[in-house]
Design a protein around this nucleic acid. Sequence first.
DNA 1: GCCATATCTTGACATTGTCTAGATTGGAGT
DNA 2: ACTCCAATCTAGACAATGTCAAGATATGGC
Lengths: 189, 189
Amino acid sequence: MNDRHRRGDLRRAMIEAAVAALDEVGPAALSLRDVSKRVGVSHAAPAHHFRDKAGLLTAVAAEGYERFVDELERAWSETGDFTEVGVAYVRFAIEHHVHFEVMFRIERLHPDDPALERARERSRRLLCAALHGGSDGTRRGLAAWSLVHGFAVLLLAGNLDGEVAADPEGAVREIVARLEALRGPGLAG
Amino acid sequence: MNDRHRRGDLRRAMIEAAVAALDEVGPAALSLRDVSKRVGVSHAAPAHHFRDKAGLLTAVAAEGYERFVDELERAWSETGDFTEVGVAYVRFAIEHHVHFEVMFRIERLHPDDPALERARERSRRLLCAALHGGSDGTRRGLAAWSLVHGFAVLLLAGNLDGEVAADPEGAVREIVARLEALRGPGLAG
DNA sequence: GCCATATCTTGACATTGTCTAGATTGGAGT
DNA sequence: ACTCCAATCTAGACAATGTCAAGATATGGC
């Protein structure tokens, strides 16, 4: 009936409309029926592509992880700089805050979705490679990951005030550099 | 009709039952009617104490902030150690993970609730006092806050694997010590 | 050209948050 | 002790939502 969609098109359209809706009403108030209405299909249409609401969110999260890794990989390969990966992490959280929020809202995702698991595994491997390199291994990576993730989460939640919120990349560059300083000359890090 | 509750008792009972429910079914699946059923009152009873569902969650969050500040204050006054405040931060997130999650799920809270604002302000002041002290001021506090918060969030979301998850306090002590090391001898800062 | 399958629609149902109106209660004032 | 008022709770209703079942339509392989 609906001639606006070719085969496999509805899935994409639903994901994009979901992102738009999440941006407008927030993740708590997302309605499947509303997203269906935005796309112009019946309320039960998405059930065949995503099993349930969690399925749609899972698809958004998986897409988010893919783009996330793409951006981090680019930052890593272009600069080779540990700090810039952290900056890219935060930049992604800001520019794609909808995806970012869904990615870590695990209680509303299908935990064993293959696409999500693949994307998540890709992300995990990249973070290991980019962050865990160095003499003291996992602890340094853990600290860096916690640092940038915490910064991103606090920023998105509105817990960071004016000066920092105005130039988040600058701020994150400074605080990641704190960790990096430990590896500089004068300290056996 | 219900003789199990005296005046002002239902409010407390609802909050406690809400925490129990949140612990069982998760924050996304919390149902007001279910909490009312647990307490043994009609489904519309809580409306007079908390305006709506967000009102109940706001009360849980406010209570969480109060306990949160209590624990951080205790850690700070007992040890005077910067690192131990961070450890207490993460310990609270683990032991009171329900409260912690609700506290930072801002889109489902009443942003201008006076009790919540008071508790949040108390928390903000304490974090400033405990973390922002030192020669380089806010940046150091920002780094520390991001670090412990990110660690806590990643841990609760299940993103941290075995070794770290087995002894989170030890892990957080190590990574907070990283920041602290910057203030040690040999580095001006 | 025909059939199986994928895709979509329609209708239904239980659950949920919230609103309204009415019942009950507890306590202050007289 | 009685009355009255406000706080508190119940019962019922309503719209919105997620999900399921059954049927319609289209699409692509043979």
